[in-house]
Amino acid sequence: MKKKFQNSKTETVVYFICSLVGLLIVWQLAVSFTSLQKVMPSPFVVLGFIGQSLTQKIGGKILPLHILASLKRVFVGYFLACIIGIPLGILMGCSKTGKAIVKPIFELLRPIPGLAWIPLAILWFGIGETSKYFIICVSAIVSIILNAYAGASQVDQTLVGAARMLGAKPAQIFLYITLPASVPQIFAGLQVGLSSSWMAVIAAEMIRANEGAGWIITTGMESGNTVQILAGMISIGLVGLLLASLLRLIERGLCSWNIQGR
C-alpha cells in the first residue's frame, strides 16, 4: 500500500491523536450506554474535575501542590540514591577488591523489592517524610548501582590500551576514559531509577500520608470517588511521562556523541 504520509514522524503523531480520540469516544459510549456507568464516570467529568482542581482545594491543597509535594519527595530520595549509588557502582566496576567487598552484600539485598522496605521504614523513621525518602532511595538505588557497575566494568579495553599508549597514567585513565565511557549506561540506570522512584513515592503516600498524588487516589478509594481516583491516575501518568522525557532531554544534551542521526 502506498504510504500516505511520507515522513513517519507525522504518521505516528496522527495515529497517537486518533487513538486518543478513539479511546475517549469508546469510554464515553461505554459509560453512557452500558452498565459501566454505575462504576465509571465519563471522561469529560474526569477532565473537568482535573481542570476544576487546578484552583479548588482537595483536602487542603490544590492538585498541583499535591503533585509538587510528591515531586519534592521524589527528588530528595532520588538525589540520595544517585549520590550513593553511582560512586558505589563505579567503585564495584573499577576495583576488583571494591567489587569483592560490596557486591556480595548488594546481591543479598537486591532481590528484596523497594516497597517491601515500607513497614520497616515506618517502624524506623515513623510516618513522616524521612521514611518516604528512605523508601524512594532504596527503590531507585538498585538499578542505579547495577547500571553504573555495568558501565564501569564493560569499558572497551582497546580504548584503555590506546590511552595507555598515548601516555595516560592510571588516574588519567579513570578520569578521561572510564567515566565518560560509562555515562550512557549510567543514564540508562538513572532512567529506570526515576520511574521506580515515581512508583515508590505513590506507594509510600498510599500507605500513610496526608498530601501528595498517592494520597489523592487513596482518599478517592476510601470515599468511593472514582472521579478523583481517575483524575489522580491521569495526573500521575502525565507527570511520570514528563519526568522521563526531561531526563531524556538531559541525556541527549550530555551524550550527543552517542546519538547516531545525520
Binding site: M199, I202, M206, T226, L230, G232, I236, G237
Partner: peptide
C-alpha cells in the same frame, strides 16, 4: 497507559 505506575492502579 504505560506511564501510570502499576501501583497507581491498586485503588481503582
Amino acid at each position: 497507559i504505560r506511564p501510570i505506575p502499576p501501583v497507581g492502579w491498586i485503588p481503582l
